[in-house]
Design a protein around this nucleic acid. Structure first.
Lengths: 123, 123
DNA sequence: TCGCGACATGTTCAAAAAAACATATCGAGG
DNA sequence: CCTCGATATGTTTTTTTGAACATGTCGCGA
């Protein structure tokens, strides 16, 4: 697995408008596109159907003034997708927010953990 | 409405184990119980069925070493629920984390907003 | 001992979300 | 002009989730 699989810790969801948001899943897709050069490959990598991945991309593109992902069909590479400058910015921004959040709540999180039940004990 | 209705900003979900977490909804329920003295009233207040609210409470109780909510049936008050000391702690801790998060990502969030499409333009 | 209000649970039905399946399109290159 | 892999969408099926409804329990106080 590549990213977004933290089994414990904080998850950040940035709510831009009621309904529209960017969370761990969309950030991972952006990252996947950036690394693989295609929506399909990014989706496959995270065990997600192409359709679903594409839908999320469409949603993100519609949410910003300028699209975050640019796609090409056919051609020498037989299609593909890349992050636009804004796409890179949004991804980097989200990742920074994740780090900042983790740092900010680190102490509080430790306080929570001492109250948590051990995972092992299942009835 | 009382709480948990931010239309914009960050939402925090603390993932304790895969599947189980405490997020805005559960925090609001804890707060509701604390203020109303009953699961039912807390649920009503946030437009949620008693069953659903109770299910969430059960989930939280099971997730920590010691229950966060203590309930009583019958009696002079005809039943009710209160936060245990741990419940108070968890709620306070979560609210602090919300504030810390908001402060930590404030600057980055501003950067995101300038790229966002205006809400008004709907096709 | 009956009623009240809240806890505790089970069941059933509807809505929403995700997965699965099916095409259609594009365009360089063989 | 046909192939190839990826984008772009539509349709159908399945799964998950949530809402709705139905019961049963509890224990004090009238």
């Amino acid at each position: 697995m590549k990213a977004g699989n933290k089994t414990s810790g904080a998850r950040l969801r940035i709510v831009l408008e009621p309904d529209i948001a960017i969370g761990p899943g969309k950030a991972d897709i952006l990252e996947g596109i950036r690394e693989t050069g295609s929506i399909a490959a990014a989706g496959r990598r995270m065990g997600m159907s192409y359709k679903r991945a594409w839908l999320l991309v469409e949603g993100m593109n519609a949410c910003f003034k300028s699209p975050l992902v640019e796609t090409r069909r056919g051609g020498q590479a037989r299609g593909g997708a890349v992050l636009t400058p804004d796409g890179e910015k949004v991804l980097a921004c989200y990742r920074r927010m994740e780090v900042l959040t983790a740092q900010a709540i680190d102490g509080e999180l430790a306080g929570l953990r001492v109250m948590m039940a051990d995972i092992s004990e299942r009835t």
